[in-house]
Design a binder for these strands. Structure first.
Lengths: 252, 252
DNA sequence: GCAAAAGTGTTAACTGTACACCCATGA
DNA sequence: TCATGGGTGTACAGTTAACACTTTTGC
């Protein structure tokens, strides 16, 4: 895909436009997000936690830029990303550490940057995180624990989370956050975690089953200290259909 | 507001970032949008219809840039704009006329531009459109009639329209599209026009009245060739409250 | 046997939807 | 008197929301 653009004159990095990626993952306990640490030198005193993001090239489109940057910094490939919006307060660089870091890495560290944020949902256990480029490390962090991020990344994270919550009410979610087989209890936990509220078990099951996107498997849980649950999986066809048409009655 | 930023060093126009504004208006018949015409010279053969939009300054934030650009091109002041998203295909300049026009007006006509789109709703009758800067004219055009626009503005218009439709289901709409006094019939017509579907009169009335955002006025229509309708107005306090909290049960 | 989550139905309140007639006015 | 949109109520179907007990397993 990138190749097509490489035939046109390559103008290199655009100093004014970046992309940032908010990658959510669910571990059956809490909602997590991929962060990187970067800084000048190795001293932890200059380290900053940030969302994976970087400047785009003049000859690539925004969606592709987000994919590329995500892969370069975290090793995550072929991730479907959805745009959250543009963030571009001219004084989004408020922190001295961010300023220093920019000077150490950018050709035009003072340039005004507008960033386009993207988000995605991934099954954590399938992800191989691999820090490279200026990312000193990559890791999953609990969204609830994140109190500070570089630039305006905290705002971006909050807006992305709102967008994710909203998505739950309008489209099926889970293919991307859960393993192939899962239990209804785990699915409900996912909804409860993202929406940050308790849901009645019977009502949840009735409602989710009516969507008709789940296939009951013969297999049951093993080794759990309670009645083992049947595993279910998503019915891909129905799931995709519903993703496209959407619905608007899935509030809890 | 702008003043605060003018104290910082003014870096001038950023060649890579623009804003575009999609201003919707309703005339009791159809949905309209503000367009400008611009081109090289006065010959109509080089004219292009476009959304009002231009490059931003390095020292202004995106929202303010959108407000400023809108005012400069159309004379519309103090318009509350909501972000739609970023559009930035590197080959969004596909048309020769657009290319020529860029060369005639931009210092760096070949620069890659990412545009941030904004939309708003305005009562048409209160708007004084005044073309200035590079806008040769400004006018309302029926959304349904628009088949071609400069750059990727048609895509931006479509996305904004989707966003507007979506807004109807989640927040009260109308303060900005209707005059102060209006009839329930007119309000219904507005919903029908935007959603592009017929709505049952009794159901519509019941539902909108339950929102409790309307105040019945004593005044009635005059000069209409049918039973005159009572005028209503919005209850500003309730309207604002609902705008903030939102709802999700206003589908038709 | 105890702790922990699975699994399962009913009821009452509310919401959505479909539907038809008379009214007040201007022309 | 006709055409036009204003204004009104009901019944049925479907959806939401609240609620409690038995089952199966590991320890």
């Amino acid at each position: 895909m990138n190749r097509a653009y490489n035939h046109t004159k390559n103008k290199g990095l655009n100093p004014n436009i970046s992309v940032d990626c908010v990658i959510f993952g669910f571990d059956f306990e809490k909602l997590n997000v991929v962060t990187i640490r970067r800084g000048t030198g190795n001293g932890s005193e200059l380290m900053r936690t940030a969302l994976p993001g970087d400047l785009i090239y003049d000859n690539e489109n925004l969606d592709m830029a987000a994919e590329r940057v995500l892969e370069e910094l975290t090793g995550l490939k072929d991730v479907y990303l959805e745009q959250v919006g543009a963030f571009g307060d001219p004084n989004r660089v408020r922190n001295k550490k961010d300023e220093k870091w920019l000077k150490s890495i950018r050709e035009q560290p003072e340039a005004r940057v507008v960033t386009i944020a993207y988000y995605s949902l991934l099954p954590m256990e399938k992800c191989q995180l691999l820090a490279s480029s200026f990312a000193k490390s990559v890791q999953w962090e609990a969204v609830a624990d994140i109190k500070d991020l570089a630039f305006d990344h905290l705002e971006i994270l909050k807006t992305s989370l709102d967008k994710l919550k909203n998505k739950l009410a309008h489209q099926p979610v889970g293919v991307n956050l859960l393993p192939e087989k899962f239990t209804l209890g785990q699915l409900q936990k996912m909804y409860e975690t993202i929406l940050d509220k308790k849901i009645d078990k019977r009502n949840f099951r009735r409602k989710i089953q009516k969507l008709d996107i789940l296939t009951l498997l013969d297999e049951k849980q093993t080794g759990v200290p309670h009645k083992p649950s049947h595993y279910v999986k998503f019915n891909d066809k129905k799931y995709r259909e519903l993703s496209e048409t959407g619905f608007d009655n899935f509030g809890f």
